[in-house]
Design a binder for these strands. Sequence first.
DNA 1: CGGCAGGTTGACGACCCTCAAATTTTGTGG
DNA 2: CCACAAAATTTGAGGGTCGTCAACCTGCCG
Lengths: 240, 240
Amino acid sequence: MLSEGHDSARQRTHCVACNLRRLCLPGGLADQDTLAFETLVTVQRRIGRGTALVSAGEPFSSVYATRLGSFKAVLLSESGHEQITGFYMTGEMIGLDGIDTGVHQATIVAMEESEVCSIPFAALQRLAAINPHVQRQLHRALSRELGLYQGVMLLLGTMTAEQKMATFILSLSKRFALRGFSGAQFSFRMSRAEIGSFLGITVETVSRTLTRIQERGLINIRARELTILDLPNLRKSSGR
Amino acid sequence: MLSEGHDSARQRTHCVACNLRRLCLPGGLADQDTLAFETLVTVQRRIGRGTALVSAGEPFSSVYATRLGSFKAVLLSESGHEQITGFYMTGEMIGLDGIDTGVHQATIVAMEESEVCSIPFAALQRLAAINPHVQRQLHRALSRELGLYQGVMLLLGTMTAEQKMATFILSLSKRFALRGFSGAQFSFRMSRAEIGSFLGITVETVSRTLTRIQERGLINIRARELTILDLPNLRKSSGR
DNA sequence: CGGCAGGTTGACGACCCTCAAATTTTGTGG
DNA sequence: CCACAAAATTTGAGGGTCGTCAACCTGCCG
């Protein structure tokens, strides 16, 4: 009996010990509640770069927590134009939009080698019914997504390309910092085209805007490595 | 004992008998569940035209169902620019965005003499915990709002002014039809400026776009009275 | 080393914003 | 019910931002 937990074939989730816990659905829960929650998460899935975790139109049955890597949510308009509605980093919840219709609205694609915890929604609802703290966390997660979307609407509806870009960089910075990485220097995963799709501008405008912000000395960017050089003025550029 | 229910001073809500029921939170619930839900709704508020139902920054305690009239949700960016994130017609739920932070994110203003049913959120959560059908409806309402916002993101991010306008008209049409009004001819409540704010374009562009669509014979519009003349081509103009 | 996706840069034009003024509609008090 | 003021809407002219098209550059991988 020398097992030290290296049994990777049947690796079970242990939310209590997970370093993403405070960012994830069990965030803020007492250990006792977290242990109850943990029983829901029986499946972890690895998703290869460029592979879909869920596809638009698929029946909805689970929500997912990003455990490793990152994802993008893509919406396809009826005219064939596609728009990225969000990027998801570790600890962030995915797939909440399928609850209403029972069908996933967006296609969710891994932007790198990634891993998620599957949380069967029916079971989550049952647990939420008997555990008010879990219920509260679920409602907060849903509401948080609403708040995020509102922010994006503000961005898409009222900002210039440069304000959008600055806002996007600051958002990335904040999220990296929340995860214990540097908020001043990080390497992001999305292509220029993906950034453009998310911000509602073209690739060319993304490129030009980044160049302009760099020439003004606010950032340094090379490929997908970004350093923030002048945070105060970057904030100003974002429109505040 | 001649009472026929005209006791307007203490008019209690009766969701079971409400003609908006199928559009509202208790939509799809059995009579028994609806009666349970009904006990939550003890307060109805009248909101005068231009008056705020809730203001951004206020503590969150209730969600609201539009019983009469219509509302707009306004978000103020840090630069002072404001954007309307949604319009709400009868039966639609308001205020869900405050759950996460406990503070309302948007200011919600009545666009005409309106009335809402207040639903204390803590009580709603308690009922949802013991009644799976109510729980399901709550989750669906939250998720539906997510889906709506995704649609708006698609609109703001990828469409031209004319596509936005056509999409907006079709959305209004559908919602009026759902409420038993004509989808082909209706009078909307929002100003050109409000439409523009929602669609991410200026008042002038709204006006010009409407004129252009009218000149092409797709609609007839006078003040805030709109008639759809050529639905198929209006659909095409919306980008599908 | 060659091919290819991803990224940058340039020229040009369209769409939409800004500013300005005319016109219509709405609201209010007499 | 009318008159007037205020607000909302329309229309016009001009300019700027960003999209389109095209060429070129860079890094990566077989």
